[in-house]
């Protein structure tokens, strides 16, 4: 797992600051950033930071998780549409599993997403919490 830290480091702009590609022609925004607009083939783009709020499009509760998630399961996972229309997948946190619903308003917060036990790197990034203020 020694390369995990470099893989994670490379994604910091997306995970830490939700940086995304906004393409000129289509006006569409994608996270992570990409070189080519998948719809138009356009390469002209600007880097934008995504809004921090949005709503749940769909969700699940992961009850059986891969080994690296250990005792974190069960946890809720959702596809979220942010207020600018950009979509991303994120874990839900600070929420009762049964409260997660389609259409629920959420806010992205900076959290620990994964960590390599107590010895390895801690991977930070966005998670979604119910929007309450």
């Amino acid at each position: 797992m020694t390369m995990f830290s470099s893989r994670n480091w490379r994604e910091y702009p997306h995970r830490y600051r939700t940086e995304a590609s906004k393409f000129k022609k289509s006006g569409k925004t994608y996270i992570p950033k990409r070189l080519v607009d998948p719809e138009t083939g356009d390469t002209e783009q600007e880097t934008v930071r995504l809004p921090e709020t949005g709503k749940v499009l769909t969700h699940t509760i992961i009850r059986i998780a891969p080994s690296q998630w250990g005792d974190k399961a069960p946890y809720a996972l959702a596809i979220i549409e942010l207020t600018d229309g950009t979509r991303l997948m994120a874990q839900m946190t600070d929420v009762e599993m049964d409260d997660v619903k389609v259409g629920m308003e959420v806010r992205l917060e900076f959290r620990r997403v994964q960590s390599e036990g107590s010895h390895g790197v801690i991977s930070y990034g966005y998670k979604a919490v119910p929007k309450w203020y």
Partner: peptide, 16 residues
């Protein structure tokens, strides 16, 4: 703090 919150995550939110 829940397990996904630590001094760094609290700091980031407070700083924002």
């Amino acid at each position: 703090p829940p397990p996904d919150m630590d001094t760094i995550t609290l700091s980031v939110e407070a700083a924002r």
